[in-house]
């Protein structure tokens, strides 16, 4: 791992964002651009974006323990994951789409390319979505995802994580990332996580929050997400405008 080649080509915040090439994560080797990114002025194209884009979101979409449509409940440690989507000024980003996906409690994805012998859970799809409210808050009820093996290097295991996709108010704020859980010994071994330099890696780790935990029900985790740039464009007013 000490001989990892770390590329110079980085989009966005050069200190915080991972480089395209991080050879310990082998899939980057043939997919990372070799030529420098072109710096250009931001235009209306980059400063605008699709907003919520998806019309029909139901409250059930945010409950991954029961949204499989089977009437049954997913197996696993029930958890609440909540936080705020903020801009760089710390202001909330309301009414933006947050999409999440994750492995089940055994570390298995419901996906044709996930074939390791972890059991599937018929009551768990591992997908959810919601819109942030006026305070920028998102909230999901789910189960703690398991770690799972992958073929990056011998005996490689990904730490437990939840994938997040956020549209944000513009093309420039588009973010896909992963949320990790505190205290996981696999963090130090994971090249995807470690492609982000310290001390910024810890921004991807949620905090256990006992005030989010609900008695006789679910453990609570809090994780705030900060998008690039100021949020000058409240989508909450869109419907009235059109």
């Amino acid at each position: 791992m000490d001989t990892t080649t770390i590329g110079e080509i980085i989009r966005g915040d050069r200190e915080v964002f991972p480089p395209y090439l991080y050879s310990a994560y082998r899939a980057t080797i043939k997919r990372s651009p070799h030529l420098p990114l072109l710096e250009v002025p931001l235009t209306l194209t980059e400063l605008t974006g699709p907003g919520p884009a998806i019309s029909e979101i139901t409250p059930e979409d945010a409950d991954l323990t029961r949204n499989a449509g089977t009437g049954g409940e997913a197996i696993g440690q029930r958890i609440i994951v909540t936080g705020r989507v903020l801009d760089e000024n710390g202001d909330p980003v309301p009414n933006t789409l947050v999409e999440v996906w994750q492995a089940n409690a055994a570390g298995r994805y419901l996906h044709k390319r996930d074939t390791w012998p972890g059991p599937l859970d018929p009551n768990f799809l591992g997908i959810g979505r919601c819109l942030t409210n006026e305070e920028g808050v998102y909230r999901f009820l789910t189960i703690h995802p398991g770690a799972y093996p992958w073929k990056n290097d011998p005996n490689a295991w990904r730490p437990s994580h939840i994938h997040f996709s956020i549209l944000g108010p513009s093309s420039r704020t588009r973010l896909i990332t992963q949320m990790y859980f505190p205290g996981d010994p696999l963090h130090a071994l994971d090249p995807i996580m470690n492609a982000v330099p310290e001390p910024y890696r810890s921004r991807m780790i949620a905090t256990y929050d006992h005030s989010v935990t609900e008695p006789e029900w679910a453990l609570g985790y809090r994780w705030d997400i900060v998008l690039r740039g100021p949020n000058a464009t409240p989508f909450g007013e869109r419907k009235e405008n059109e």
């Binding site: 999409e99 996906w101 990332t177 995807i192 996580m193």
Partner: peptide
């Protein structure tokens, strides 16, 4: 520079299809 700490990006990985490409999320 802003005041809030920007969240780093991570790969979308291989298993995003059921979520990001569910039928009502695909717009071709």
């Amino acid at each position: 520079m802003g005041k809030a700490p920007v969240t780093p990006t991570q790969t979308v990985g291989p298993f995003f299809h059921p979520c990001l490409l569910r039928p009502d999320a695909v717009i071709t």
